[in-house]
């Protein structure tokens, strides 16, 4: 039996001095190389759970463990985010003043010893995403699908173990949605990465071998 790469133990996240609860005690284990989708209604807590799992935020109580190490105490959150996790967001979150190839390099700047061959590696990732002729384009010169592919290349820049995607197709048409999902599944298979996707689209949610539904801050049985 494989040990989980990510584990959430009794995760609670509340805001406004406890008056608003986004997560109400979530227990979750995700194995290395697993493909998991998380779905739920708006405000159900699915994105909050993804933020906890990705070390973007700490739970109000409970722990997130990466390969058995508690995030925030036994493992530094910045180090975890820069070296073990690649994020993909619905709104792409590319830096508007940087070209595509520079946006990918930005992620590499967070890790020491990644200074060499940054341009070559960023270019190779963008070529892998089918953006060979878009390396020098600024985000506003790219289509929505192209922007998301740049964001995926950026998420892969530091060869993370886990890819976390928050509504990655939320801003895309059906053609681009299919394309992006093919890319994400292909990456998981070719690289053996763990893939966790938060989505409100049933087709995508049900396409994964494991599907988790969140309701009112709890995992539905």
């Amino acid at each position: 039996m494989s040990s989980p790469i990510l584990e959430g133990r009794a995760l609670v996240k509340s805001y406004d001095d406890g008056r608003v609860a986004a997560l109400r005690g979530v227990d979750l284990k995700i194995d290395a190389g697993e493909y998991v989708t998380i779905s739920g209604a708006s405000g159900s807590g699915k994105s909050t759970l993804l933020h906890m799992l990705g070390g973007l935020d700490l739970p109000s109580s409970g722990d997130v463990l990466f390969r058995g190490a508690k995030l925030g105490s036994e493992m530094d959150l910045d180090t975890f985010r820069s070296s073990q996790v690649g994020f993909i967001f619905q709104a792409f979150h590319l830096l508007p003043t940087l070209r595509a190839v520079e946006n990918v390099q930005v992620a590499m700047l967070a890790i020491k010893g990644r200074a060499n061959h940054r341009v070559e590696r960023a270019s190779a990732l963008l070529e892998e995403m089918g953006l060979k002729d878009r390396l020098q384009h600024f985000p506003n010169e790219l289509s929505a699908g192209e922007r998301q592919r740049v964001a995926i290349a950026r998420a892969l820049a530091n060869e993370p173990a886990i890819l976390l995607a928050d509504e990655p197709t939320g801003n895309l048409d059906s053609v681009n949605t299919g394309h992006i999902m093919d890319i994400l599944r292909g990456i998981r298979e070719s690289r053996g990465m763990t893939l966790v996707i938060v989505t409100h689209e049933n087709d995508i949610a049900l396409s994964a071998p494991r599907h988790i539904r969140i309701r009112d801050g709890r995992i539905e049985a």
Partner: peptide, 16 residues
């Protein structure tokens, strides 16, 4: 603010 949030999400440390 959001741009800085992106950098932090990518693992940039506070000192970066």
């Amino acid at each position: 603010t959001r741009e800085i949030g992106v950098l932090r999400a990518l693992g940039w440390k506070g000192r970066h």
